[in-house]
Nucleic acid binder design. Structure first.
Lengths: 358, 358
DNA sequence: CGACGCTTTCAAACCGCTTTGATTACTTCG
DNA sequence: CGAAGTAATCAAAGCGGTTTGAAAGCGTCG
């Protein structure tokens, strides 16, 4: 059943039927109702492809995912997609994902733009200096960056305050009496990891603690990365008394290493981690396992998709940005360090300290 | 630059240009070469929407993801997508993902089919009895199921041998001298979990071990699920000496609980898990952490996408199926149990036993 | 009563590509 | 030399919608 047939069955022209279904005012209320009823009865759904050709709107948002040794398709991406998908389906958009070899990424954006397959794209995992912003600017394709990058042009983005989050996380550990704090960061060519490192270094600097390059690591955020790095550090002559991790996954690895060394998490060694609030790693409960800087990547996906749709539909200007502050969650993974001011802290039960502070 | 303009600039008709670009033989070799060169020079890319309308082929595969309390978008889905995406981009297909409220799932398939937005779909996470097979059969939309279901009609599917995998895993533990083996399964309304449970029960039955419902659990495969369930069991009067887990994520939780109870993984308590070979949880190395039944979900995604494309393009008949056997990986998480025949096993170094057997 | 304005409907053009069914130019053969 | 066959090209008709511009129907007013 297509539009022409539906129109014929109603004794109307395709024009009128089309208008009736799209809610244009030129059609009388009575006819409109009749058309809508008939459409529902026959189970008529307009052919999306024809509609797109006629309107020039793809009603789709693209996500280009380069595949390289450092895989972008990870659980964080999955949660982001889940959030974005909610916004898309509410607004009637489709989500188009292209998994392409890294070297074809630029070509992939060009193809999406010239073939008009999508109305806009979301840029994932921006590097500290990311060429994609310029590509997209040149192509005239609307886009929003999940994160930020140090491009010349102003561009639309949404990010969490990574620098501030890690500054505060580091402060927390320093206040607890920690001085040797290891940083297990993500890949520092990525903007988010770069900013987190600056936050960490700033906090150490402000406290007059010398920055030790031997305590800073940067890698893909896997569990074994956390485990192996922590093992190596804990067995070293001068082990850190605290760890700061960029992902709960890595933090789990660290915690495994702590156990393996016969130490107690939150007593002998403290850990603070960023928590993307991933579905399969809920860090919740009365007193969550990990003290963390928490921000739902799923919520971010939902919001960014909405921002992009607003921009495409002209409800928002390009060049907007949002910066979310993270939530600080007190968990069981932190305790007083070797330079603690008030030693009685150590006797205090962790669950009595449970609280949230932003 | 569209086809008409390109044709005009060459002094040819759109017909000839279209044929030249699509490699039809009716056009002379010389003209064809000239057209291809001009197209490249002008950066001409055919409008995908117009092409789709004209050919009736969407050149897209759909993935409908219902969102419910039991979230389908999880790291396993992400890895699957990564694999499928490879096949799609090689074959020139797009991947369309619809995240919809669970109650709109049926409507979503209908819309995809009638709007001709996709040429086929992949069905994820089939339940033991799944209504979607019938829906899709009725809609006439080509599809392949990742997993299986007990539907009446034969349908195309690709699955791993879940029953056999868990049968063998259970056998392994029994052979090591374990009798009380806890099963931390996924949701048993899902087909894969149902089959795993049967494999587990069959193996116990064959060994003459009474099945204890108090040792069988079914839930979403999160880390805390593993931790809490294992804690509870290990503190019970009759703790199990071994665990069988459906996911490495859950296995990590179990291992955390074992440490928390002051026990040693692979010595005091054994764990075997299924391993989907997720990117951020590599269970590799000379002697991997966990003894596991391993099968890359990413490889499955790649293969299933290929099967579906073959079916759509008429290279394969519908109704085909593939059953993959899993690989058994010997890791550090298993050791002799309380009923071990040869006690000297306990002294053996795990890494000396390292081997693979299928 | 005819001109006018307003609402409602429609025929036809269009979006950019593919494909069918000519048409033309050039060989080949009886 | 004309008929027939073949290769190369093209005009036009789709695909299934939207949208423009015109027309029809109807009540109102001078």
């Amino acid at each position: 059943m297509n539009l022409k047939e539906l129109a014929a069955s109603l004794g109307l022209s395709p024009t009128t039927v089309s208008r009736a279904l799209n809610g244009y005012p030129e059609v009388s209320a009575a006819t409109a109702a009749r058309v809508v009823a008939a459409a529902r009865e026959h189970g008529y759904v307009p052919n999306s492809v024809a509609k797109r050709l006629a309107t020039g709107r793809a009603m789709a948002i693209g996500h280009v995912v380069p595949q390289s040794e450092h895989d972008m398709i990870n659980p964080i991406f999955a949660d982001f997609i889940a959030g974005a998908g909610e916004s898309y389906s509410q607004a009637g958009y489709n989500m188009l994902i292209s998994v392409v070899p890294a070297e074809e990424e630029a070509a992939s954006y060009t193809a999406l733009a010239t073939a008009r397959s999508v109305d806009g794209v979301i840029v994932h995992g921006p590097a500290a200096q990311d060429p994609r912003i310029e590509w997209l600017e040149d192509l005239g394709l609307p886009f929003i960056v999940h994160g930020r990058t140090a491009g010349r042009q102003p561009h639309s983005w949404m990010d969490i305050n990574n620098r501030r989050a890690f500054h505060k996380a580091t402060d927390l550990l320093i206040d607890l009496g920690h001085r040797r704090i290891a940083l297990l960061n993500g890949l520092e060519r990525m903007d988010f990891a770069h900013r987190r490192r600056i936050g960490y270094e700033d906090a150490l600097g402000a406290a007059g603690i010398t920055i030790d390059p031997g305590l800073m690591f940067s890698a893909d955020m896997t569990e074994p990365y956390g485990f192996q790095t922590a093992m190596q550090l804990l067995k070293s002559p001068e082990p850190p008394s605290a760890f700061l991790a960029s992902s709960l996954i890595t933090a789990l690895g660290i915690s495994r290493a702590i156990s393996a060394c016969g130490l107690k998490l939150g007593q002998d060694v403290s850990v603070v981690t960023h928590d993307d609030a991933l579905w399969f790693l809920p860090n919740q409960g009365e007193v969550p396992m990990f003290t963390s800087t928490k921000s739902s990547v799923r919520a971010a996906g939902k919001r960014i998709a909405q921002m992009l749709i607003d921009q495409i539909e002209g409800r928002a200007e390009p060049g907007v940005s949002e910066l979310w502050e993270v939530e600080m969650i007190q968990g069981q993974s932190t305790g007083p360090g070797p330079f603690s001011q008030n030693k009685e802290h150590g006797l205090e039960q962790p669950h009595l300290r449970a609280q949230r502070f932003s």
